[in-house]
Design a protein around this nucleic acid. Structure first.
Lengths: 197, 197
DNA sequence: AATTATACATACATAACGTATGTATAATTA
DNA sequence: TAATTATACATACGTTATGTATGTATAATT
């Protein structure tokens, strides 16, 4: 009955993939472990062996999605050397990724509710917001922007919140491309006040 | 066993009050109807008589909290005749109310997850965001601001999202007063680009 | 005065979570 | 390589929470 380490990795991956799909489609509360069990062809025992409980499984799923998006952003942002363009491109990449992926329900809706605000914040900080904050600090230091007496933390949270909400808004628009542009334009205008020309 | 209409009103009010407290403290998922039943001294039957189910009870609670905050904002905003000051005061009032009330978990965290994004958005639109959007449109028309080619919708969502996130951030800071000021400053700066001098 | 509607209570069916335990076999050690 | 141990699951069960069906007393209505 015991599987090889390679096989084990595969089963975990399989569970995560299916759980991600189900959670994204139906929402955490509407997915029972039994659903996941059936689609994976495993049993409850298997899942409880690899994950602490339903919430633990969700946490793993959440982190995976988070990582994936963070990577996408990093890649897109780094396509330019201009710090300002990096910022804007990063924002666009987030809006695109977070609104297109079927995973946004996991990331933005169920995430905070299931994990709790503090846990969510820690993870969001680790993967998503730290990058944004650092970028702002760097830009402030090398004079790409001048934040003056503005609180970087408040600014970071404001931008992050604005983009999270926009991602959800974009998803329900029929022409996502237009909506993304509109959102990026707003975000860029938000920052324009601090831009050093 | 049957109560008079007055008494009925009171029981409903009692259930709502206790449910609000419990949901705010422990979160929707961690509150069982049994908890509420015990604290109200009623039975499950009573609750299912007045509300469709647990989610329905939460929806009622959510709407109450929403209404309450909307009122506070309206009152604060209308203390000035200057449209710009109305906007900023409204934002400050929201940040204050949504971060100080113990109800923010209901409003910002559980709300979207339990009700679903679309329902949440509809209610949020009805009570919170419509006011903001209207204010922006009015200001744009009477030349308090000039939004140019910016999408009002995208702007509204951005501001709303920024403030929601800030409200949560403010709550976990030890000096809320300072944090509120920092957040208001950011929001005001966001809008400054469009302000007609 | 008779009827009806309603504000609950009680009892039960169902579903979902989580835990305890068992087992086969891969991995490790002797 | 034989013996031991650790682990990847499966099975079975206990518990809890939701929701539904039904009963009953009494306020409201006719």
């Amino acid at each position: 009955m015991r599987k090889t380490k390679e096989e084990t990795k595969l089963t975990i991956k399989k569970v995560l993939e299916i759980a991600t799909l189900k959670f994204a489609e139906d929402g955490y509360a509407n997915v029972s472990l039994e659903d996941i069990v059936q689609e994976t062809g495993l049993t409850r025992g298997a899942i409880y062996h690899h994950f602490k409980n339903k919430k633990g499984l969700f946490a793993s799923v959440f982190e995976e999605v988070q990582k994936e998006i963070a990577q996408t952003i990093e890649i897109e942002a780094m396509k330019s050397n201009d710090k300002w363009i990096q910022l804007i491109n990063g924002c666009r990449a987030f809006l695109t990724a977070a609104s297109e992926t079927a995973h946004q329900r996991i990331l933005l809706i169920d995430g905070p509710a299931v994990l709790g605000w503090d846990t969510f914040r820690k993870l969001d900080q680790q993967y998503a917001m730290s990058g944004l904050k650092e970028q702002l600090i760097i830009m402030n230091q090398d004079n790409s922007i001048d934040l003056k007496d503005i609180s970087v933390e408040a600014l970071t949270h404001s931008l992050s919140g604005a983009m999270n909400e926009c991602a959800l808004w974009i998803t329900e628009k029929n022409d996502r491309h237009i909506a993304i542009n509109e959102a990026v334009q707003v975000i860029e205008n938000f920052m324009l006040g601090w831009k050093k020309k």
